[in-house]
Structure formats: C-alpha cells, structure tokens
Design a protein around this nucleic acid. Structure first.
Length: 775
DNA sequence: GTGCTCCATTTTTTT
DNA sequence: AATGGAGCAC
C-alpha cells in the first residue's frame, strides 16, 4: 500500500522557500470583485461566478494567496474540483506562483480525494484498504443478480431503475431502514426496499464501494469516529469547492462536517449552470449554505471576459425565461462580435456535412484552428454522423465521452482479473471472469456455487476455495480448482512488485490473449489490441509513479473521467456532450440537434425538467467566445427509423435580433417565426408522430392494393400488414391480449405499438411478433 | 455447457 | 444500428 502523507506540519521543508512573486502582484490584474474573492480568506464565503467571469483564475489565485500569506501549509488546503484535469491544471498554475510545494495540496474530485481518505481509514469501516470500486456497470450487475435471486423478472423490473433509486437514496443519506419506513408508497419502492439492504451487504462482503459510497462512507466514518473526524477537521484549514451548484446532498454534508472546526469554506458556483440534478445535485445546497452561515460573505463575479456581446445577449435571453433563478447581471466589455448563425438542415447527415463545411470555411476564411472549434450535442450518440463527416473532410477531431475504452468488454475482463489479484472478495469481478474464457463453469454450476455462498453468508471466493465440499459437476470442479490456483499464483507474482509482469502472468495462465488471437477475426484482433493497450497503460503508470500499486492503478482507472482524457492543445476539433463541456471555452461553438424531444430532451413517460434543459442550453451558449452556430434538422434517425423533428422551443426563445440565417437574413422577418404551430403542445407533437392522422390514413383500408399493405411473411399467410390497424385487438404469445394504439414504418419494418392488458405498452416489429388478430 | 439465432429494447446527461 | 437476453440445437 502506498504511503499517505497525512501527518500534518511535519513535512514542510520546501515550505520555507520565498514566494516567487509578492502578494501585491497576485492581486494585480484582477478586477475589484475578483480581488475581494481572492483576499477575503477567512470565514465562510460564497462566490457567485457567472459564466466566463474568471472563476478558475480566482480559485487559483486564492490558493496561491493563502500559501503566500502563510495562512496554511499546502497539505492543509482541500480543493474539490469537478474533474481531475481541472485540478492538475490548477495545481500547475499554483506551482508557478507559489512554488513546488503546491504538489501537496489536497486537490482533486470529490471521488478521488475521498477514495484516498477511505483507503487510509478503511479498517475503521470494516473494509480493507484494497477495496474495489464498482462502476455503475458493476453496481447494475450486482443489483440484477439480487433481483434474480429474489425471483423478480428483470424484464419487468429493470435493474437500472432500482439502481437509480438506490443511488438517489444513498445520496440523500437515506439508509435502507429509513427507506423502508418512508418510501413504501409504490410497488417499485417495495422492491427497492427489499434490494437495497442486500445490495449494501453484498458490497461490504465484496470489499467493494460504489461511486456513491465514496461520498457517503466518509460521512459514516466521521460520524462514527470522533478521533478521525477531528483529525481531518483539524487538518483542512481551508476548504474550497468548485462547481458548487452541482454538488449533491452527500457532498454537502461531508464538506460541512470537515469545515466545522475552521469554518474557512469557500464555495464557487452559478445556479444558472446547474445541470446535474439527475445525479442529485440541488440548488438547495446553495440555499442551505446561506442558512448554515447567515453571515457568510457573498461575492458576485459579474464581468464576463469570455464572450462577445451578441453571445451574451443570446444567453441572457434564454436564461431569463427560467422562473427559478437568483438575480444577477452578467456584462462584458467585449465587442458585439458576429451575429449567431442558424443552420437549418434536412436531416442529421445534412447537419453534420453543413457543420463540417462551416468548419472548413472558418479555417480558410477566418484563420481558426481546429482546436478553436467545438461541436456540442445533447446526447453522445449524435457524435457518430459528425465523426463520419469530419473524417470524410479530413478534419482531425477528438471525441470526448461516449463509450470509453475502459467500458469495453475485453478491457473490463482484464481489469476484473487484476481486481481479483488485489481483492478476490470482489464478487462482480469474480463472476465476470470465472468463465471467461470459457472453462466449463456454466450457468448451472454457477448457480449452485452462489446458492452455497449465500447459505453460508460468505464471499463466493471462499466457496471456491472449498469447492471439494460442494456438490458439483466434476469437470466444473476441477476447472474451478485451476482457476483458484491461477489467481493465487498471480497474487504471489504481484507480491514481487512488478505490476505489468503480474498482469502478463495472469493473462498467460488464463490464455485470455491466446484465445483472442486464435479466434482470429477482425473483432477479436481489435479486442486483443485493446488488451495490449491496457497493458501498456499499466507499464506507463508504473513509470510515472514511484511505488505504484495495482490498487492505485485500478483506482485511477475507475475515477478518470472522460474529460480527463481530453487533450487541451491537440490540433483537432472537439466533439462532446454539453454536460462534458461545462467549464470549458472555445472560440467557435456549434450547438446541434436543437429539436423538440432531443434538446430539450424528453424521455418516455418522464417529465422534463424544462428549466434544467434551459440551463443546459445556457451552458452550451456560454462556452462560445467569438462565434456561435445553432443547428437543427427536420428529420433524424432514431432506433433505425426516420423521425420528423420539430424545431426546438429554445430557438423561439432566443433574442431574434442576434441571430441570422446562413444567408444573413434576419430570422425576425420569416413569416410565422419558425413555422411551428405554437398552440400545439410541442412535446406531444414530437413523440406522437405515429398517431397523426396523415400517418394513420396510409393504413386506412385493410386489404386495399396500396403498396403498404403488401403481404409480408406471417404464420398465417392470409393476414397482411394492412389488417393490423390502430384499434385492432391482438394476441401475443407472451404478452397476452392487447390493442394496437399506433403503427409506423412500412413493409418489412412495420412496427405496431400495442397496449397489453397485462404487460403494458410494447412496440413490436410486425414481421417477428407473431401477432394474432382477435375479435 | 457452448454457441448461435431470434427478438425486443434501447438513447439522456456522469463520478 | 447496436446491444443483450432467451431459447434452441449440438
């Protein structure tokens, strides 16, 4: 285990070096509000930082100032940032101002900082310091297994739903008992109440923590153990929290706890940029802060240095439509700049091509570099077409987010092997690889093993060690004995200290790589390359860190965000979700997919938080420094089908005086605005296309000779697609009786939406569903 | 027990 | 379009 430098004030040698610049110099070059935000060091402070108001600068200077004024040693400062990358960039700048001791500042994301503390204190929580970190995929699988063990049908009860509910409960610090007492209002909550305690128990038994645990276990630790609490309360003389509007209740409580002794807590945020409510973030944290510290200083940063006036006007016209917001006025000395350009497209390919074309023009005519440009979208899957279009035009791009390297199956498999070396109790990892590559331990054997483990309430790993005593299919038994042997041998290998060698060792012994090579398909070789890349990453990690442990490596892998992997200086256009773009800025920004249902996003039977979507749009707009493009498409593929799209309400809300079409025309003059019938509820519209009369009428006459009712293959050849009309009652083998409520697509691809009395609403491909018409 | 084929579902956003 | 589960043949 790596050593932690927790002992205070003992290691402060380099502390004595003279400041490189004087504090006066530090305060120069800041505006008045910024200067105050930097120099009012003591007591609770809330900085309300509008977009582009130099917030990072203030935080950086503030920390440097604290060091220079000798208010604290570096290791007495805790700075919680939104990404690890933001932390390391800030650290670099502080180093330049205040010297190399900045290395010792506790700076990082909530998750990585608290993981570090938890590893150190693990034994007080009944964990050991080599605990695994479950990512959301691991958690979901664990929950799925529990649901299955409790005999729920995971087709009906989605593990994801349960997972989300448990996660919210955890972040609100609601334990299973409280949940059970308070939230048994719906049947789904009953299931959550049943799964929740088992899930916690499984985590503990696996010596594993999920992402939420990294935030709430410290609270448990501090509440349970006065000594430890005081140790950290003493230690952190100054606490700074960035992106405060996006912290959730657990994060609020844990920092509150830590700040109790010195009460030097500085939070920086902007309620207008709160975009993570789905993760439990709540504006009430800002209000709670004001309640907890009624006398807290409150400093607004209102001058925007980033954007042109036109861009700010656009942003302002959007955000003022929100009712819930704290009053503030953002202003700038910058020029008006170019008007905002509206791009109207036929479909998403047209959109991607047009954006690519504009990028070409921006480079040719205005001298922008690819790294100046970002393409933003609401959902990651939209990136595909842009990648294609840019590749065709030979424009370099970097994709941030989406399915990451570390989520690929083969990479997760190898990581699972590595986790087994470090923490064999880790049940998710064990179950993932016990039969990967296939070694004859099938579903049946596995079920027996799991049942046996549950019966004795012990980790599956322990059952495996005593596999002789389990009544099992013989070949499976010996396979398991081999498996246990390999893991143990690998653990010994790891003791020797070389991570890469230990990883090589286990992949050799399990023939994991050999298997991929032998398969010799295009995909399997791609997977092999990914595994090799992971091995390289281990090697690199060892080189970068003295005394690197496998636990450290695995933790880093679990907690790097996609954003951390983005390269700032790379000569490439950046593609990313709007969420990922928070905190960044680009001279040129394209905001794409401005259509109802997509942005603002609407999910089936789920109410939209329109104000949050609007804040998201606000965040997107305010990423732009000089030029902003807004783009929408009239139709778009969804689930392999073309959907008509309606222009986003956000484009109606934006100040029309700052927007022009591509030809330079004012959008004011266009008759009827964007041609949307505003009396209609746009959400209904976007999602009930298939219910529209003109779509239905195509199917009006059963058995007519129109092409759309051509016979497709069914069991009963006499039934044609035309017979399945909206309103017709049907029977499905599994779902039972139901009624068709919508129909879409054509010929082979005809789909019907059926409301089943038992199973609820389902969308079925007519060609496969074997529906029978009943009367 | 393995692997293939069929079918239903999926798409927010992230540590 | 892509993924993942269920069910079936070997």
């Amino acid at each position: 285990m790596k050593e932690f430098t927790l002992s205070s004030s003992s290691q402060s040698n380099e502390q004595e070096s003279e400041p490189t610049i004087s504090d006066v110099a530090i305060l120069k070059g800041l505006n008045e509000q910024q200067r105050e935000a930097v120099s009012v060091t003591d007591g609770p402070l809330q900085i309300v930082a509008g977009a582009g108001s130099g917030k990072t600068r203030v935080l950086t200077f503030r920390i440097a100032y604290l060091l220079q004024q000798k208010k604290a040693w570096p290791n007495q400062i805790l700075a919680l940032t939104f990404t690890n990358k933001a932390a390391s960039e800030m650290r670099e700048r502080i180093k330049q101002m205040a010297g190399p001791s900045a290395e010792k500042i506790w700076m990082g994301t909530f998750h990585s900082i608290f993981a570090r503390i938890l590893r150190y204190e693990a034994k007080h929580l009944g964990y050991n310091s080599r605990f695994s970190i479950y990512d959301s995929d691991d958690s979901k699988r664990a929950i799925k297994l529990i649901l299955q063990e409790l005999n729920f049908d995971i087709k009906q009860i989605k593990p994801r739903t349960i997972q989300n509910k448990i996660s919210s409960a955890k972040n609100e610090l609601i334990d299973p008992d409280t949940f059970k007492a308070k939230f048994i209002s719906s049947s789904i909550d009953d299931i959550v109440a049943a799964v929740y305690p088992i899930y916690l128990q499984r985590l503990k038994q696996s010596n594993a923590m999920d992402f939420d645990d990294l935030l709430i276990k410290p609270i448990e630790l501090f509440e349970k153990n006065k000594e430890i609490r005081e140790k950290y309360q003493d230690r952190f003389k100054y606490i700074l929290i960035d992106e405060y509007q996006d912290t959730n209740h657990a994060q609020y409580v844990v920092t509150q706890l830590l700040a109790q002794k010195h009460k030097n807590i500085c939070v920086v945020g902007d309620d207008a940029q709160s975009i993570y409510s789905f993760r439990g973030a709540d504006i009430s944290n800002i209000l709670d802060f004001q309640n907890d510290y009624p006398k807290a200083n409150r400093i607004p940063l209102e001058q925007n240095y980033r954007s042109t006036k036109n861009i700010l006007r656009a942003a302002d016209s959007i955000i003022k439509q929100n009712e819930k917001q704290l009053e503030k006025s953002l202003w700038t000395d910058n020029h008006d700049g170019e008007p905002i350009t509206l791009l109207e497209n036929l479909n998403e390919r047209d959109e991607a091509n047009r954006v690519a074309r504009h990028i070409g023009m921006l480079r040719m005519n205005k001298g922008y570099r690819p790294s100046d440009i970002a393409i933003l979208y609401r959902t990651n899957y939209q990136s595909r077409v842009f990648e294609d279009a840019l590749r065709r035009k030979n424009v370099n791009y970097q994709l941030v987010g989406g399915v990451s390297f570390y989520q690929r199956k083969e990479v997760k498999d190898v990581l699972a092997y590595l986790k087994m070396m470090v923490n064999p109790q880790d049940e998710e990892s064990l179950l993932r690889i016990i039969n990967e590559p296939a070694r004859g331990v099938g579903a049946k054997s596995l079920q027996t093993i799991i049942q046996e483990s549950r019966r004795h309430e012990r980790p599956v790993w322990e059952t495996l060690q005593q596999i002789q005593n389990v009544d099992l299919y013989k070949p499976a038994k010996s396979a398991i004995a081999d498996f246990v042997h390999i893991i143990k041998a690998a653990q010994e290998k790891l003791e020797e200290g070389d991570l890469k060698e230990a990883a090589d060792f286990i992949l050799n012994k399990t023939s994991y790589l050999t298997q991929l090579v032998e398969e010799n398909t295009h995909e399997s070789l791609g997977r092999r390359d990914n595994v090799l890349e992971l091995l390289n990453a281990i090697k690199y990690f060892e080189k970068e860190h003295d005394d690197a442990t496998l636990t450290d490596f695995l933790q880093e892998v679990s907690l790097v965000s996609d954003l951390d992997k983005m390269e700032a200086g790379k000569p490439a256009v950046t593609l990313m979700s709007i969420h990922a773009s928070k905190g960044l800025e680009f001279p040129v920004v394209f905001i794409t997919g401005l259509e109802e249902g997509l942005f603002p996003m609407k999910r089936q039977d789920d109410d939209v938080d329109i104000e949050e979507e609007r804040r998201l749009f606000y965040v997107a707009i305010t990423r732009a420094e000089k030029e902003l493009f807004l783009s929408h498409a009239k139709s778009r593929y969804k689930f392999g089908e073309e959907k008509r799209m309606i222009i986003s309400r956000f484009l109606d809300e934006i100040d029309p005086n700052v927007v022009r079409t591509e030809t330079g025309a004012s959008i004011n003059q266009r008759k009827g605005g964007f041609g949307r019938d505003k009396s209609d509820n746009p959400f209904r519209d976007a999602f009930s296309d298939e219910l529209k009369p003109e779509n239905r009428s195509r199917w009006k006459k059963p058995g007519s000779s129109s092409s759309s009712s051509r016979s497709v293959e069914y069991d009963d050849q006499s039934v044609t697609a035309g017979d399945f009309q909206v309103g017709v009652k049907v029977f499905h083998e599994k779902f039972g009786k139901g009624k068709i409520i919508a129909k879409e697509g054509g010929q082979e691809k005809t789909k019907v939406t059926v409301f089943f009395q038992q199973a609820g609403q389902k969308k079925l491909l007519l060609r496969f569903a074997k529906l029978r018409i009943v009367s």
